[in-house]
Design a protein around this nucleic acid. Sequence first.
DNA 1: ATGAAAGCGCTAACAC
DNA 2: GTGTTAGCGCTTTCAT
Lengths: 315, 315
Amino acid sequence: MANINEIARLAGVSITTVSRVLNNHKYVSAEKRAAVEKVIKAMDYTPNRVAIDLIRRETRTIGVIIPYNNNPAFDQLLHGVLNASIEQDFSVTVLPTKYNKAKELQYLSMLKNKLLDGIIIVSRSNPWETILPYTNYGVIVSCEYTDHLEIGCSYVDRYASYLEVFQYLKDKGHRNVAFTTARTESTSTQQTVAAYKEIFGVPQPDLHLPECYRMEDGHAAGKKLLNLSIRPTAIYANGDEVAGGIYQYAQSIQVSVPEDLAIMGQENQPIGVALGLSSVDHQLVKVGEHAFQLLIDKSREKIKIPYRINHRLSI
Amino acid sequence: MANINEIARLAGVSITTVSRVLNNHKYVSAEKRAAVEKVIKAMDYTPNRVAIDLIRRETRTIGVIIPYNNNPAFDQLLHGVLNASIEQDFSVTVLPTKYNKAKELQYLSMLKNKLLDGIIIVSRSNPWETILPYTNYGVIVSCEYTDHLEIGCSYVDRYASYLEVFQYLKDKGHRNVAFTTARTESTSTQQTVAAYKEIFGVPQPDLHLPECYRMEDGHAAGKKLLNLSIRPTAIYANGDEVAGGIYQYAQSIQVSVPEDLAIMGQENQPIGVALGLSSVDHQLVKVGEHAFQLLIDKSREKIKIPYRINHRLSI
DNA sequence: ATGAAAGCGCTAACAC
DNA sequence: GTGTTAGCGCTTTCAT
C-alpha cells in the first residue's frame, strides 16, 4: 500500500506537509491541505500505526493477564476492563496464562519490548518480587491487593468479606461449616482459610475442598461433604456454579436447603439467582473498570471496591 | 533502554552481528556470539518488537470483533479463540463494538494500518459488502456462514438446528409455540423466524419476543407469554439464561414444566443444567477454536461445526 | 564470518 | 507556511 512518500510525491509537497495534514497541524495552506487530502482519498491511504508507535514509543494497547481457565470470576473482571476500554481509545489484548509462570513472564516482557503500555494482572502465578522489575517498563495494575507501592490496585477486601460470611454463618448457629476454594496457592484461598480460622478455628482437613472451579466440582464436593460421618450444616462455596453443583447433589439425596444444609455462593451468577442461592457479590466488573482507569492514569492508587451480600433462600 | 546500536558498540561488533545472534543465524563466530550475549545479558536488553513488526510488516496479533453485551454465547466464542491462540504464539486483541457500525469499521481499519494481521468477526453490524474491501489488508474469518469466498467461516448451521428444534416440538404435539431472540436484525434471529415459518407457518407477532439477552429478559418474556389469552405450550429461548428467566416466572405462577409448558434453551449453560432445561449446544467454544486456526492458516474454508441437543426434563 | 549501508514508514527539530 | 534532514530500532542485501 501507498506510504507517506508516495502521497507527498503525488500531491507535490514534502512528506512533512503530509504529516502535518495527517495530524491536523495548523500552518498548512488551504490549497496544499486540499491537494494532500485529495491524494489521500484517491489512494485510499492510511498511515502505518506501527511506524507511528515506533516513534511515539507507545502503542495505546494494554494487556490483561488472566488464567482463563473456566472461571466466571475472571470473565467478569475482563468484562469490566473491556467495558472501560471502549470509551477511551485503547486496545486490550488478552493474555491467558493457564497459570504457567513462564508464560506469565513472557507476557510481562511485552512491556519491555514496547508492545504494551501497561498490564492488568487479574490473577498471577509468579511472586510479586519477580513481577516488580517489570514496572520499569510500563504500568502494572493488580486486581488483588498488594503493599508494593509500584503497583496500583483495584481490589475487594476478600478477607473482610470471608470474615463476614463465616461470622454470619456462626451467628445463624452453624458450628460445623465446610468450604470450597480454587487453587490452594491462590491468595483468596489463603484468605478464606485465614478468615475461617478467625471465626471457627483451624479447619478440619475434611472440610476444606480445594480445586473447585465448575458445577461438576461442586457436585463432587457435595458428595464428599454430605457423606462425611459428621455432616456439615453449612457450606461456603467459592462461586455460584460450584454452589449450584452442591445444591444439585443435596437435592439428589433429599437433603433440603436450607433446613438440612445452608449454602452460600459467590459472584452473583445467574445460576445462583435461579436456585435462590445466597451469594456474596465481589463486584468484579467494577473492579475491572477501575483497574483499567488506574492503568491509563498511570496511577498507583489502591482502590477498594465494596462487596455486597445477596441474601436469598439458601441460608 | 538500550538499543541494538549500544549492544553492538559495547560488544565491539556491528549491529548486523548483534542482529544475527538475536535471530540465531549461523555464521557468527563463537567468540563474537559469546561477547554479544554477554553484553545483552549485562544490559538486560530486549529487542523492540515494534521496530521488528515495522520491518516484517506483520504483528502476529489478531483481533476479535465482538459486541460484548451481556451474551454468554460471545464469551464462549472468545474463549475458544483464546484457547487456540495460547498454543500458537499469537496475541489476541478484543474489539468490543456494542454493535456500533462506525466502531466496527474503525476496528477493521486496524488491518489497513498494519496493527493486526487478521480479524475474527464473532458478530457484525455492517453488511458484508462494507466489510469485504478490508480483506485486501488482512485475513478475515467469520463465525457466521457467508457465501463470500474471501471470508473463511467457522460456523454452525443454525437454520438446521432451529428447524430440528421446532420439528421436535411439533412432533411432541405442540402447535402453539413461542420463541425469544436477540436483536431483530441479527442473522440468527432471521434464521429462527425462517425455521419457524417452515414448521409452523408465519409466527404470530405475539409469539416472537426479540431483544432478549439475560435472565431478567426471560422473566419478562415469560410474563408476557404466559398471560396471553391463548397461552403457548412451548417456548424456545435464545439462551439458557433467558430460558431460566422464563422457567422462574412459570414457577412463580404455578405453571409446571414440562406438563403445562415446555422450555428449550441454547448454549448448554450451567443454569440450564441446574434447572434441568433441555438445550441445544451450538458448541461455540469449538467454533472459536476453528476460527482461530482458519485465521492463522490464512484459509478461506467454510467449516461447519455440528450442534448437539441435550435432552433434559423441560420438554 | 563480518560490516556498511540502505531501508521499513513515520515524526519533529531546524532552517528558510 | 514549507521542506530538509536526522532519527525511531531493527533487518537485510551486498560487498569483502
